[in-house]
Write a protein that binds this DNA or RNA. Structure first.
Lengths: 166, 166
DNA sequence: TGCAATGTTTTGATTCAATCAAAACAACTG
DNA sequence: CAGTTGTTTTGATTGAATCAAAACATTGCA
């Protein structure tokens, strides 16, 4: 590793390093790299982040990425989402309480704003004595590309997931 | 296996075998056993179902349980739910579109009726071109037991999952 | 009632995602 | 600039689920 690339941390311009430091974490090259990729490609798996990070920081290990992500989610600057049938995805934590829509054919994920300003069906009717802290909505459907692919070819859809009828 | 226990399928009284046959599947002892346990203990993992089924049907393998569950979900008489941080859970498919509330401390799962008769926030505001088929709501909170456990002991909650702030 | 065809279950191996533990190492504090 | 704390690496391991092929049972049909 020529000239210790892994230690070049503090020389970043601004915001990324700042938001890491602001959350009480030490600033390191792997963390900067992961946060940058998280920004450029939200809803990435740990493996995908690893592949991209490794391109610019060859010494990085997959376990380091997992470690960085654990630190980020613990510190509240990243969020882990786990759609059924998919490995965990990560995105930078943003203030709003948005949800996700997942394509059942290709797995593409997009953000969806919460329908009403104040969370709508976040207060279930019968909580069975539970105290509710969070409500999480996942929408399942077809992304534009897969709609086109299905309507043009008459081949079988080969769905990524087999959700029960709603 | 004395007198071929595994083949005693058709002699069940009624409803279980009927609902298997009604969905176009062959009736077998492992399927009857899995469906019975699914009825008695909803929200069970495959492993848990396997342990219970094996008690009454010793020759059954874990893979058989997975196979039965795949057949059931494919035929629409069982539903697979996959809460973040937990292995997949299974329940008998019922007509209503209910959701689930999960205890972040002990993992207990309960059913929650959809707040309004017609699904409320099942129509997101910006679908980004997606066609929405299903909306899935998961509530996270504390079950009554864990609320009591936390307020009585001042020990650390040791949460099962670390959800981001909502 | 018995036979054949189809579909299910078993057996064994394998994949994928994620986590654990300890040693080597680097970032921040003073 | 040195020490302390915390991070990263290395290597192994777990857990959940899936795959493939052979053995077997259920159902429909004669």
């Amino acid at each position: 590793m020529a000239d210790n690339e892994r230690t070049r941390a503090a020389e970043q311009p601004g915001t990324l390093a700042d938001s890491i430091r602001a959350s009480g974490l030490k600033v390191t090259a792997p963390r900067l790299a992961v946060l940058r990729v998280l920004d450029q490609a939200p809803h990435s798996t740990a493996e995908r982040l690893f592949a991209t990070v490794r391109a610019e920081l060859p010494g990085t290990s997959l376990q380091a990425v997992y470690g960085v992500l654990a630190a980020f989610t613990g510190a509240g600057i990243a969020r882990k989402i786990e759609p059924a049938g998919s490995p965990a995805l990560f995105e930078r934590q943003v203030g709003d309480n948005h949800h996700h829509i997942v394509c059942t054919r290709c797995g593409a994920v997009h953000d969806v704003d919460c329908a009403v300003g104040e969370a709508p069906c976040l207060t279930p009717s019968n909580t069975a004595g539970f105290t509710v802290h969070t409500a999480e909505v996942t929408y399942w459907g077809l992304c534009p590309d897969c709609q086109a692919a299905i309507s043009s070819t008459s081949s079988s859809p080969s769905p990524l997931l087999n959700k029960g009828a709603q």
